[in-house]
């Protein structure tokens, strides 16, 4: 499988939020405004790529050769939590502008199931190191795409006359359903383009 097709599949056809249902909490919670949506997604892309880059060697060179695959979950979640902390401290010290932009989102990502999800899925898919990172970046970009589109939808929703019983979260979920319906149109697209 070429890198491009992995990337496109992760962004469009197998979108993390809209078809794999990973990272729904931030998708519903932080998508009210475009700029927060962008900030959150940027942080997610960054953390996804970084945790894959770190967890992959740990899994393939430490856990698997020693028959410790059953420690995958526990090791990965701890590595991700520690990594997020570390990145935060480094950013705070050396790149304050970036920290100001992403800082508040970073700790929220520790327990985001999309991050742990992408790391674990990379193991089960049997990707190589590079493929894993490409897939993680793609998953992050897909998350961003869904967030950005959905924040647009939600800003329109604000000014709509919604039936009373659907006001609040229900209409947001139904809107999400329609957005995800439109993403289903990408089915087969990647195979169509790349043969």
């Amino acid at each position: 499988m070429s890198y491009l097709s992995i990337l496109l599949t992760a962004i469009l056809t197998a979108n993390f939020v809209l078809s794999k249902f990973l990272g729904i909490c931030p998708f519903l919670g932080v998508s009210k405004k475009l700029n927060t949506a962008m900030g959150m997604s940027a942080a997610v892309i960054f953390v996804m790529a970084l945790s894959t880059a770190v967890c992959y060697p740990i899994n393939n060179y430490i856990l698997v050769p020693n028959g410790l695959e059953y420690l995958q979950t526990i090791v990965c979640i701890l590595v991700i939590a520690a990594l997020v902390q570390l990145v935060e401290i480094i950013l705070k010290k050396f790149m304050p502008p970036l920290y100001n932009a992403l800082g508040i989102y970073l700790p929220l990502i520790t327990t985001n199931c999309a991050v742990l999800g992408v790391v674990l899925l990379n193991f089960t898919e049997g990707y190589t190191y590079l493929e894993s990172i490409v897939n993680s970046v793609g998953a992050g970009l897909g998350f961003m795409l869904a967030m950005v589109i959905f924040s647009g939808v939600r800003s329109r929703l604000e000014s709509c006359d919604v039936p009373k019983f659907l006001q609040g979260l229900p209409i947001v979920l139904i809107a999400a359903s329609i957005v995800s319906l439109s993403f289903m149109g990408f089915t087969g697209l990647v195979e169509g383009i790349l043969g």
Binding site: S19, L166, P170, I174, S177, S180
Partner: peptide
């Protein structure tokens, strides 16, 4: 049973719970 139906069902159930 596909993704959109999941969101939709959850939305409707949420509306009922709110009611």
């Amino acid at each position: 049973i596909l993704a959109p139906g999941g969101f939709f069902t959850f939305g409707i159930l949420m509306a009922c719970a709110n009611k």
